[in-house]
Design a protein around this nucleic acid. Sequence first.
DNA 1: CCAAAAGTGTTCTAGTTACACCCATGA
DNA 2: TCATGGGTGTAACTAGAACACTTTTGG
Lengths: 226, 226
Amino acid sequence: MLVAVDCIIFGFDGEAYKLLLIQRGFAPEKQKWSLMGGFVQPHESVDEAANRILEQLTGLKNVYLEQLHTFGALNRDPVERTIAVTYFALIDIQKYEKQINNEYNAEWFSLNEMPDLIFDHKQMVDMAKNRLRYKAALHPILFELLPEKFTFPQLQALYEGLYDTVFDKRNFTRKFLSTGLFIKQRDKEKESSKKGAFFYKLDQDKYSSDFQAFLKFIPNPEKFLV
Amino acid sequence: MLVAVDCIIFGFDGEAYKLLLIQRGFAPEKQKWSLMGGFVQPHESVDEAANRILEQLTGLKNVYLEQLHTFGALNRDPVERTIAVTYFALIDIQKYEKQINNEYNAEWFSLNEMPDLIFDHKQMVDMAKNRLRYKAALHPILFELLPEKFTFPQLQALYEGLYDTVFDKRNFTRKFLSTGLFIKQRDKEKESSKKGAFFYKLDQDKYSSDFQAFLKFIPNPEKFLV
DNA sequence: CCAAAAGTGTTCTAGTTACACCCATGA
DNA sequence: TCATGGGTGTAACTAGAACACTTTTGG
């Protein structure tokens, strides 16, 4: 039985969520679009395989990478019995350089303009989207998609994009500022407006110390969940 | 590469959370306690394998079974390279009959009185516990551990046991009743008190229609999360 | 000077918490 | 009759939601 790893790689370009896909240069389904994947090698753990595969395509190390789900349907790969351990990654799209690896024909696609994908990769993407929505509602992970410096309008677009909705600007700002996670910078981003919007950075200490958001079925659930 | 499935099987006896473990009758680690597991067969999906393994041990079908995580460290199985797809199950402990399968020496252990487990099974159990806490804070899944009819004192013990805390009885009752998920029965459970506590049943319609609890990072997140 | 986006406060509402006494019954 | 556990209401507080105008500045 073969064990493969597939990576769902998310980016955000300031307007929309993107996925990094590759055009397969090999059979089966040659020329069709698919997630970046590969087989787990005997000398590496499954997590290591995921990191390797991600780095092969993007050149990036130390990115947010989380195991999503293992897909093990009987005929998901028509050629050989393969189970796929999927991971989703959140990367700063600005750090990605197309030229890093020419071995793969990789391209960013907007989530709502995706080509058909091979095998059960569409299902994987759907699950990843869902997990991301779920997780981002509770944990401050979306910042992994932003550059080091970002503005509140960008931050709000990031959240609005994920949930496909609009939030009240005042309430949004207040809620996020009240976490104490953000440090205002002196400079402004002046490209997207005349007035310009102040940059913020994450308070890395607060960010890395287990920040938990506010679940409400259990009183003070942040006490209990790790 | 071998692909195994391991099941973390939870029960609740009215007082404490329990795990169903088996004493291995085979090498390696013969006689030691472990999770119930087995290899994925060529003719079955991974999900099917999990259901099969669970049924082999408990005789139960259609129980709550959710994929947890895939463990793929290099030397997790000292004999052969094996990756383990883990699932956790929630079963009504009263439905379990010890005699269903004598092939395995199975026993329920309280979560805080567990024997040493083989390989990385302890890590699996920890992760399952955590996932259960997490999930139960947001979704009404703990009822899978209760018999069809249960009392509010039992329900509260169930939640207090999982989070290892005490809740205010009045607030607890109000919050849970306000979900409209519970139908009061005419009869009482009279074993554990003189006065007796009314039985309740789940409103199965409400229960099966995607009940979502109340996350609070995103306004009205139940609109967005599936 | 005006169009476009940034930034900022207050009020109302609803949900959460804290808290204590009476009830029913078997022994 | 009393010990044990079951059942219930209210008031204070807090967090979330709704809502609109002013500021800045490049063109």
